[in-house]
Write a protein that binds this DNA or RNA. Structure first.
Lengths: 291, 291
DNA sequence: GCGCTGTGATACCCGGCCGGTATCACCGCA
DNA sequence: TGCGGTGATACCGGCCGGGTATCACAGCGC
């Protein structure tokens, strides 16, 4: 009746990406005529024009843009479903945790130590955790608010910390005990490093584009840039670095994230371990403040 | 290759729900043999057993349970995608907003007044907003934290308010200026009304099971029950009701919610209107406190 | 023990749909 | 006015999804 089929959605997404039937057909490994026909069928079934076949080019209609968003989510969902199902059947059953390299090493180690069963840790690129959760390569991830895109995920706060400026040890500002964002932005010889945004692009600016923490460490040590990181990054800094607390940078909360509605027993167990840790940590913090 | 098909997922979910091939086939409107074959194909392709065909009965394997969760989400996604695509093509293009009847009437009216373009308001049952968002019947919804299930949705806080106890006007407790939860739970002649949980069931207890606010209003007026509601519910109370502030009930935040990753321009516009309202409201509140 | 009932699995056939090739209609362009 | 390139159309063949008939096997009543 009006039930979309995965094959149709795959075809549609490819055409929408290429905006060219012949190239799309080639990418799909089929001939062009069946592809044209499949898209026509889809449009007929929906009762909606998805493409404007103007002379000189194919363009998405507004409805087509809507379907493109939806279809991408659905396709990612199906491959995630297949992956998760296979993983659920595998005898090892190790929970897969994705985390950005270099982020909160200490926290992660405490979490793994506290957890009874085995966890497989995957280090992924900056901001890639969400994708790994969505396509089923990971069951849980360590992510950071407000940097990472947490929409569509359930989360549990683990740790909130202030941010610090990472400077070359010899830099004049490195002698200060605290800095403001204005201080480091004012250093025209030391542009602020730029992290990728949710969509993987970088906002324009003079600073270098950062892909991973190690690259950043090296650039700072070379005196090329200054970076803003959460305080726990101190654990992997070099002697050539100086970390100065920032008074006016937003606090960063590291969270444990997992796909919304995940009913996995193993995920639930890890979350329980994590909340236990977080509770203990906040209790210790209160005691330290009282003392 | 290993690409799940919607038809297979639909078949699988039906069998998983019925745990009986013949009945499932009947529900699907096909014969039993093709259904058996389809499930076998699915299992072969995944390389995973989804059902335990024990003598005397069919049961889901662990992997099958995982796939069932995933498949339900995907199927809901496809019908939502079709609906949203069709709606995007419709000339009227009215934004559909779902809200629980009786919740924050005042707030909603202010929101609609402030918004320039037309919004179609759908009143739905308690806790049904999430389903309407997920299956594409609504673009945005008014929901309440912590009552509603907000997982998988993006939200914007609109208003936080305390809760009040709704009592029959003649009840002894109605003369008090404030109450605690213990006060109203202690009234054995007046059981506390029970709202449905996220899954639609009710936790066991003596109070009546509530489906909508009007039903609740009537039951309270009849002296059958006492209810706990957010303060703004006062706007639709009867003269036969008394609303007494509760000192120890959690605060309730009304939020505007929409599907995560929605790129709809119309949704973004409404959210902007809403945040403008919320900002103005909090500013007025601060001024009131200063005065 | 022996049918009977009801389960899911198997065997086999048929028709429709998906994919292929060949071709058309139509545009921009030299 | 041909020529290259676009997507659409026409038509054909093989595959696969759906059908019926039947089997294998368990529980059950006699």
């Amino acid at each position: 009746m009006d039930t979309l089929e995965i094959r149709e959605l795959r075809y549609f997404v490819t055409v929408a990406e290429e905006l060219h039937f012949s190239r799309a057909a080639e990418r799909l490994g089929i001939a062009q005529p069946p592809l044209s026909r499949a898209i026509q069928q889809l449009e007929r079934r929906l009762g909606v024009a998805l493409f404007d076949r103007d002379r000189r080019g194919v363009a998405l209609t507004h409805a087509g843009q809507v379907l493109l968003e939806e279809a991408r989510v659905i396709l990612a969902g199906t491959i995630a479903a297949a992956r998760r199902t296979r993983r659920a059947a595998s005898p090892t059953q190790r929970l897969a945790l994705a985390t950005k390299a270099g982020a909160n090493h200490e926290l992660l180690r405490r979490l793994l130590d506290a957890h009874s069963t085995d966890v497989e840790v995957t280090l992924c690129g900056v901001g890639e955790q969400a994708r790994m959760l969505r396509d089923g390569r990971a069951d849980v991830a360590l992510m950071q608010r407000p940097f990472d895109d947490l929409s569509g995920l359930d989360t549990e706060d683990l740790l909130t910390e202030e941010q610090v400026a990472i400077l070359p040890a010899g830099h004049p500002l490195a002698a200060r005990t605290r800095l403001s964002m204005a201080d480091i932005r004012g250093e025209s010889d030391l542009p602020v490093a730029r992290w990728p945004r949710h969509d993987g692009t970088y906002e324009p600016g003079p600073g270098p584009e950062i892909r991973d923490s190690f690259q950043l460490a090296q650039l700072v040590a070379l005196g090329q840039t200054v970076a803003v990181l959460c305080a726990s990054s101190r654990s992997w800094l070099w002697s050539a670095h100086a970390a100065i607390p920032l008074t006016d940078a937003p606090h960063v909360t590291t969270v444990l994230a997992w796909p919304a509605h995940s009913r996995s027993r193993a995920v639930a167990d890890l979350v329980r371990t994590a909340t236990g840790l977080a509770d203990r940590a906040s209790k210790e913090e209160r005691q330290a403040q009282n003392a």
